[in-house]
Design a protein around this nucleic acid. Structure first.
Lengths: 345, 345
DNA sequence: CTGAAAGCGCTTACAG
DNA sequence: CTGAAAGCGCTTACAG
């Protein structure tokens, strides 16, 4: 005999009472509860999750899906680990555990997600790397699994999401560069179908328009979201006939590769070319000259993601009355030396 | 009605036959099996994991425990994502799923592990960041949960582990530096209680002894396993009265911070100071001059970890007859420019 | 306040 | 080859 039955026998009471005591139900004698709690600690008893899940229909587990693409893996990405702290601080309030689900790079993300959901190992999902057309969202909407995404999509209809303020970043960056006299401003955008690339490009176009500058497609450099991509972007930019005087990057690690290619070519950031990076990154802090970029708290973002998800789950919605929400997450400009020069006109 | 019952009703057969067909049991009529399989796909049926787990006593899930310490998080760590590909390629052979379990930095790792194990959400565990004294190993040994660790420990008695060949790295690095005329060789070792620091230090001492060089404790720089730690190591080294002519690093990202501090001080790696880094890292590939370091395949290591774990699990041991094993994982030296100069004597 | 019992969704001996 | 039934470990109406 094992499990709750053993514990009940040990205490010479019924398993029902043990369960109620352990789960903090009100109608349990205070002394009985103490005895049960003490015995549970003593015998190291913790309720088997499969038994609970089967009975309750919930697993008390929230999944964070990650796509371990080759690109991500090779370049390192502390993004997810950075989120977990904030996520867990919220989830632990409700005794929910967080697990990370790495989708193998050779498996279709939608199929992987379907498998995980159908197996019933999570009560809710947090998705990232949202694609412009993302079948995962339709699937989750259809099967009524609570979820929140980091990143907007054209798919999925009404759903909860949080996304970075790409529009704001594009505006700040373009305004700043134009104030310094720049007119030819390139951007390095991801070459895949991730939605943020499209959103950023739109923001960039609108910002240019506001300043009466014509959009030049040749200044949009499509590269991988990686250091190598940054290197590639610099390389392609240097080959342009009418070379831009400034560049905005849309992935944090691009700056490292970009600096390297520029250095090879004798082009000095902040003197010969204005560079504005994306998210502030410890690894990019060591760049010389220091990079102008944007700051945000991964932990706070994790908190917001968790609260937004819980707001969509009936069992927790009362605690988070805001309901399923869509949030644009602000980033704060951190001035560096990489764009601190006025263009001679 | 839902689940297997609904599927069975739809097909007008018993749930037992549905289950047997789905699970590939031999004693099912071929045509029946086809019908079941087709219907399952059509209706999107996948067996509920809680039901299976409860009945079978296994979850078909393997956990990879990660400690998202502040240090790790801030510096980014693609190490785990790099392992997942190899891990999953093995686990998927047996229809096992991999989940990553991030231990919150404010929770005791042993307690976190106990909670996860007691809840019964995994059949086996992969541990990392092994400490010299690591209570997790004793706990897992005691409760007979199959596990493998990345990193040796003094705890836990007989158990399966894989560890990097720190001794080999120390030997190669020291031999190489001494061949170039170096006698004062510093090392930057982690300041926490992680076991690899101790093992590396031992290897380093033995290598020095082999060459008849006295060990000088002041040349052991205890710093954080991060870029900042590398910066700190360079800083401390520059303050030493009798400055070393070479330094060996024990964490891959230290090189980046170290280079930065050296550059600030006008000390050029590969000319004024020989530097040998640890694991080859895409992020460190951009360093100039190129870093001498050690290469290994994270994917292959993932494969080995998974196979070693499965060898300890009765249900899978027949496929991996090597049994619970201890493996020293080799690393291959990749010569760079950072130590390619002969010391004038 | 407590106990006895039902039942969550599966898999698997067992009977035929 | 298939069906009927037991039972994995829990929680929770229900009865007292």
């Amino acid at each position: 005999m094992k499990g709750i039955r053993q514990l009940a026998k040990h205490l010479d009471i019924s398993i029902g009472t043990v369960s109620r005591a352990l789960n903090g139900k009100a109608d349990v004698n205070a002394e009985t509860r103490q005895r049960v709690l003490a015995a549970a600690v003593e015998l190291g008893y913790v309720a088997n999750q499969s038994g609970r899940s089967l009975r309750q229909g919930t697993t008390n587990v929230i999944g964070l899906m990650m796509e371990s693409s080759k690109e991500t893996t090779e370049n390192g990405d502390n993004f997810f680990l950075g989120l977990t702290g904030g996520l867990q601080s919220v989830l632990s309030r409700h005794k929910l555990d967080l697990i990370m689900l790495p989708c193998p790079s050779d498996e279709d993300p939608t199929e992987y997600l379907q498998r995980m959901v159908a197996r019933g190992i999570v009560d809710g999902m947090i998705l990232s790397a949202t694609q412009r057309i993302d079948h995962r969202l339709e699937f989750l909407s259809r099967t009524k699994i609570p979820f929140v995404t980091l990143g907007r999509s054209q798919s999925g209809g009404q759903y909860a999401w949080i996304d970075l303020d790409f529009e704001g970043v594009a505006n700040s960056a373009v305004d700043r560069l134009i104030a310094q006299g720049h007119r030819r401003i390139a951007i390095a955008a991801p070459s895949n179908d991730i939605n943020l690339g499209y959103i950023f490009l739109d923001g960039y176009k609108r910002a240019l328009k506001r300043h009466g500058i014509a959009f030049d497609p040749s200044l949009v450099l499509r590269v991988k979201s990686s250091e190598q991509g940054g290197y590639q972007a610099a390389h392609e930019m240097l080959l342009l006939e009418d070379r831009p005087t400034a560049i905005i990057l849309i992935y944090e690690l691009m700056a490292i590769g970009l600096y390297r290619r520029l250095t090879e070519a004798g082009v000095i950031p902040g003197r010969d070319l204005a560079v504005i990076g994306f998210r502030e990154e410890p690894r990019a802090k060591f760049l010389q000259p220091t990079l102008t970029c944007f700051r945000m708290s991964l932990r706070d973002l994790g908190v917001e993601l968790a609260e937004t998800l819980l707001a969509t789950m009936p069992a927790y919605a009362p605690f988070y009355p805001k309901g399923p929400s869509n949030t644009i997450w602000p980033l704060e400009l951190v001035p560096g030396e990489s764009d601190s020069f006025k263009l001679k006109s």
